[in-house]
Computed example of a mutant assay.
Amino acid sequence: MKKIIIAGPRGKMGSEAIKLVQSHEDMRLVACIDRKNNGKKLADIAELPNLDVPIYEDALECFSEIDADILIELTIPEQGYKHTKAAMEHGIRPVVGTTGFTEEQIDELSWLASERKIGCIIAPNFAIGAVLMMKFSQMAAQYFPDVDIIEKHHDNKLDAPSGTAVKTAEMIKESREYKKQGHADEKETYPGARGADYDGMRIHSVRLPGLVAHQEVIFGSPGQTLTIKHDSINRASFMEGIKLATDKVMEIQEVIYGLENVL
């Protein structure tokens, strides 16, 4: 039985994660971390399940008082990093779906994992299909060096480009020699029209109500194009990957960045 703390229970991802834990006999929700409702129970919050589970605003207090194995972190980058680091310092293994961590933060967490001999999994995207989309794109980049990434998310997303798009670009970079795309004398009438420049490839971010999480990677070469696309229709698509990560994180003593390294 894995004892679980969820950070961000009122969010759309957090509420799905609560359902995930409830639906598996090998998991038990023991506490939640929320930016308000300190001292209340989940049962006291109208939009949350009727569970006798305590809510903490202070993560350190939660980690000190609650006996837990795993933190499922689903908040925002600034708080997410603090929660992840504090959890590891208290012997709790984080499974992190919060995006926007810097390379320096991931390096620090990797050092902490090695020092404490504790596992941590950080995944920009927990949808299995999205992970496969990233892997297929990495394979294709060996043969199609011209590539644009278009990622589309709901208009409440805080980071742009998305963690999935950044991770995709990082993986493509491993297979692709640097190439600056477009005309050598290209001019942008409106700055940013060509998207963000990452290693010569372009990343475009779309933010609109009605979207959940969508990405297409478009490759081009003379006479042909190749598009690799993934759509998350709802947030249930991420739960299979979170469950996989909660199983795997109990077996490791390192930081794993990217669910493709777990599959």
Rank of each mutant, 00 (worst) to 15 (best):
D199L: 02
M1E: 05
G182S: 06
N156V: 14
I70D: 00
T227F: 04
E61D: 14
T75W: 04
G195Y: 09
E65G: 09
H230I: 13
E260H: 04
P222K: 06
G91T: 07
P161H: 08
I228M: 10
I70H: 04
D197K: 08
I242C: 03
G11W: 02
E78S: 13
K229H: 13
R93C: 02
E188H: 15
T102D: 10
E188K: 15
K85P: 11
A160K: 09
I228C: 11
L211A: 05
V255W: 08
L20E: 03
I233A: 13
P161K: 07
L259G: 00
R176E: 00
P209Y: 11
I128G: 07
A59M: 00
A169E: 01
S110H: 07
E260K: 05
K179H: 11
A87T: 09
A236V: 11
V131H: 08
A236P: 05
V95S: 04
S205C: 07
I66T: 07
H153I: 14
E151Y: 10
V95F: 07
P124N: 09
N38M: 12
Y81E: 13
A87R: 00
R93T: 02
R28N: 02
E104H: 01
K36S: 14
H83D: 14
V212A: 04
F136T: 11
R28I: 06
K85I: 07
R194M: 07
Q215P: 05
L29F: 04
D107H: 15
F238E: 08
A141M: 01
M13V: 11
K117E: 12
F126M: 10
M1P: 12
N261Q: 08
Y178L: 02
K19R: 01
G100S: 01
A169R: 01
G97N: 01
A165T: 03
K243H: 13
E104M: 03
D231I: 06
I4Q: 02
K19D: 02
A141P: 03
R10N: 11
C62S: 03
D155F: 14
T84M: 08
L112P: 11
I6F: 03
K248S: 05
G258N: 06
N37T: 05
N261T: 06
E65M: 10
D199T: 00
L208Y: 04
T227W: 03
V249C: 09
G223A: 09
E251I: 05
K40H: 08
E186M: 14
N156Y: 14
T246A: 01
D185T: 15
E78N: 05
T227A: 06
K229N: 13
A127E: 11
L42S: 05
I233C: 10
L109D: 00
F219V: 09
F63V: 11
V30C: 03
N50F: 13
T225K: 13
I150H: 09
Y257H: 15
A113L: 00
V166L: 15
A140D: 06
A68R: 10
Q138I: 11
E78D: 07
V212I: 13
Q142S: 13
V166W: 08
I252C: 04
E177V: 05
I92Y: 04
Q181W: 12
L42N: 04
K85A: 07
G163S: 00
N50Q: 15
E57A: 12
A123C: 11
H154S: 15
K135R: 07
A43I: 12
L48S: 00
E251A: 09
G200H: 02
D52I: 02
M134V: 14
